[in-house]
Structure formats: C-alpha cells, structure tokens
Write a protein that binds this DNA or RNA. Structure first.
Lengths: 223, 223
DNA sequence: GGGGAATAATTGGCTTGACCAATATTAAAT
DNA sequence: ATTTAATATTGGTCAAGCCAATTATTCCCC
C-alpha cells in the first residue's frame, strides 16, 4: 500500500496521529524539528512543510526559537476543513441546498431546458458505456438545474460546492469510488430527478435530488 | 519596512499578487520553482513552503513533473467576492438556503440553544430600545440557528451570505433602511421563528424564516 | 512522409549539510 | 538572591545535488 500522496501530507497525518493519540496533549511541545524528523525517518525540510500545513489548519503553533506547540484541537480552519476533511458534510450540505434550489427551479423550467437536461443524460450514458467518467456531464446537470432557479447567487454556491469535491485536496479520497458501477447508479438517480422535473412536481424533484446526493455521499465514503 | 512575518507567508502573498494582478491568469502555469525562487530572491525550500500554503488554500495546484498551475481565482469565502450585484438575489438566496437549513436545525435543537436564542432576542430588544442597530444580535441569531444544523459547510455559507450584505459594495444601498422601525419588524419576525423552533415545528420554522428574509429583502429595496 | 518508440530536457520531490537569528538555559559576577 | 553575561537549544533560511514523473524531442522503421 504505497501512499501516492505527497510526503508532507503523510507526515502531517502522522503528526496529527501522535497528537490525537495523546502522545502530545494540547499545549505541550513537540520534539525539536531535527529530532522529530529523524524519529519519523524524513528530512527536516519535508517535516517543515508538514508543520506549515498543520500550522495553517490550526493544529499547531510554531514559535521561533522556542518550539512547536500543540494547539487546542477541534477547530476547523476556514479553508482546510471544507477542502479535505469532511466529504460527508460537503455532500450533506449539497443535499440540503440543491434540494431546496430545485424546488425553485421546477415551476419555471421551460421545455428547452428539459431538452438540454435530456441531452446531458444521453451524453452521460454514452460516456459510461465507453468506460469513461462522465464528470463534465454530472457537473452540467446540476448546474443547469441550479441556474434554472434564476438566482445567480444560488448558482454560484451550487457550482462552488460541486467543484469542492474535485479539488486537488479531495482527489486522493476519490480513488475508486468512481467506478462504472457507481456511475450507473448516479445516472439512474439523475433520470429520476429529470422525470420529476418533466411532470413539474417540485416535491418529487426535491426528494429525488436529496436522495441522489445523500446516496452519492454514501458511495463516496464506503469505497 | 521589515516584515516580521515568516518568509513563506510573505512569499505566498507575493505570488498571490502576481496572480490577482493578472500576470498569471487562471489555468496558466507559473515559472518553474528554481526560476521563480531566483526571480523572487529566495531559496527554493522557502518558495516550496509558500507554494504548499497556496496549495492548501486552493489558490494553486501542483502537478509533479509538470508544473504549478493557477486554480480558479482565489476564494476567501465560499461565495466569492463578486456578489455585489443584486441585493434582491442575495436575499432570495438567503431565504432559500436558510429556510432549508432551519428544517435540519429544528429537530435536534437542544434546550440550551433555545435559551441562547432567547437571550439574543432580549439583547436585540435592548439595543433597539436604545436607538442602536442590533447588527451583531441579528448576525448571531441567524448563525446560531445555522450551526445547530450540525454541518460546518452550511454554517459557513450562511455566514458568508450574511456578511455579504454588509460588504462595502452594498453599503451605500443600505442608506436608512435600518431604521428603528424596520428593526422592530425584524425583531418580531425573529420572535416568530423562535416560537416555531420552541414547539419543534420544522415547517412553521421554515415558513417563518422564509417570510422573514423575503420581507427583509423588500424593506431593503423599498427604502 | 508518417507513426511510434527510445531518448533527452524540464519540472517537481526529497535529502544532506550548513549557517543565521530568536529564544531558553546555565553559569558567573555582584 | 538577583542580575547579567555566556552558552546551548530551536526554528529560519539557504545552497547544491540527486531522484522521479512528465513533457518535448529525436530518431528509426515502415
């Protein structure tokens, strides 16, 4: 099991483990950089990169000439957390927001938009059949629906939450969760959503969207 | 002007400047590490520490053997900063999202949180009575509810949308819309929301939150 | 001339070793 | 015992080099 991630990320995880395992409780000082580097079997520059990452997400504090100290655990950083740590929360948030947005989108959705969505799913089917990942189609499907709500603020939020999932930070977690199998599930869930939109049933669309994103989150975690 | 901060932070800021100044637009590749380090007059390890910081906050993406690439232009908040356009759309978006979030928050809301909300409204009443603007209480009320949903991504979105209203871009439109009069309306709407939460009625809370934010948006526009 | 595989050049990843600057500790002097 | 100076420890930074992944180039064969 060779970890393909960069070394500084692996080191950061190891140090986090040392902290949560109680080896170094809140407020205590970690070994000196030279010592800790040797102890972990890595070079000092690599360890330093890891410490900077931990400093940014608020796990430690580095005091020049003094040492590195464990900070009060359990605090999410503004950017670090939403990027890498909580796919579950991200998908829950998408479920809540997108299922609310689709209600707004259902009523006013013109025939042309329904055709666009139909075309997107057709392309998605083709991509899956050829063994590719229908990433762009997935994105288009969710964005077209969001934009149909006629509110640019909502569209932007939906877009940025979608893109969070595919940020470089989350890439390593994606791993094998995007198998042809899971994409077939996603496709049929998309079809259910579109079906609800075509009969202009807001509550059915809301339920279908919510179910889709929660199921998607589960698939993400279980693989 | 000696900058006391650590070098990697100064370097990160410089690189951010190069990006926002348009020197390297989204998707383009930065100079090689060796070259960029020399160009900025620093060593490669120090530049690397800065690049890791920028990678963590999503400004750049580092591809081994290929180069470092500018990612979708920086985002301090999840909604981006160019939202100044339409106050109406902003308040509509808040209505959609916060009324969906409060549904999640209603069921699991403990007694202690209800008391906190009650205290916030008491403070709000006092502020209004003394002719001040209960801005902070307003913010707290919405944030405490959002956080009760137990999803930090949702909390962040609610917070950033709230703060968007008070961005410099929107400030001049606010004018005198925050009169004691309008704040009294806002207070009574908050009380209606809290009442629904206290009887643990999700749909009533949802309706009350939606009505509050839409009414707030109308007050914003009509003054 | 075109296509494909071997090769070279470029780029990030990581290490070793060293020196400087801020802090903490110890020893000396009063 | 307190203050002060010397010393050790620790983070901060730099330089040079080698490895590994990627990309561009060259060359060979058809």
């Amino acid at each position: 099991m060779t970890d393909a991630r960069r070394l500084y990320q692996q080191i950061a995880d190891q140090v986090r483990q040392l902290i949560v395992n109680g080896q170094y409780h809140s407020g205590s000082r970690l070994p000196a950089e030279r010592e800790l580097a040797q102890q972990l079997g890595v070079s000092r520059p690599s360890l330093r990169e890891a410490l900077i990452a931990l400093e940014i997400d608020g796990t430690i504090e580095i005091r020049m000439g003094s040492g590195v100290y464990v900070l009060n655990a359990s605090k999410p950083s503004i950017t670090g957390r939403s990027l890498g740590e909580s796919p579950t929360e991200l998908m829950q948030a998408r479920a809540v927001i997108e299922s609310a947005v689709i209600v707004q989108a259902t009523a006013a959705m013109p025939e042309a938009t329904l055709n666009v969505l139909q075309d997107i799913l057709t392309a998605m089917r083709a991509e899956i059949a050829e063994g590719r990942k229908p990433l762009e189609q997935d994105r288009q499907f969710h964005l077209v629906i969001a934009e149909s709500a006629g509110n640019s603020v909502l569209s932007e939020i939906v877009a940025s939450l979608f893109d969070e999932r595919h940020s470089p930070m989350s890439d390593h977690m994606r791993g094998r969760f995007e198998t042809p199998e899971t994409w077939k599930f996603a496709l049929s869930e998309h079809e259910a959503i579109l079906a609800a939109l075509e009969v202009k049933n807001p509550l059915a669309a809301q339920a279908a969207m919510h179910a889709h994103l929660m199921a998607s989150g589960r698939r993400w975690m279980e693989n």
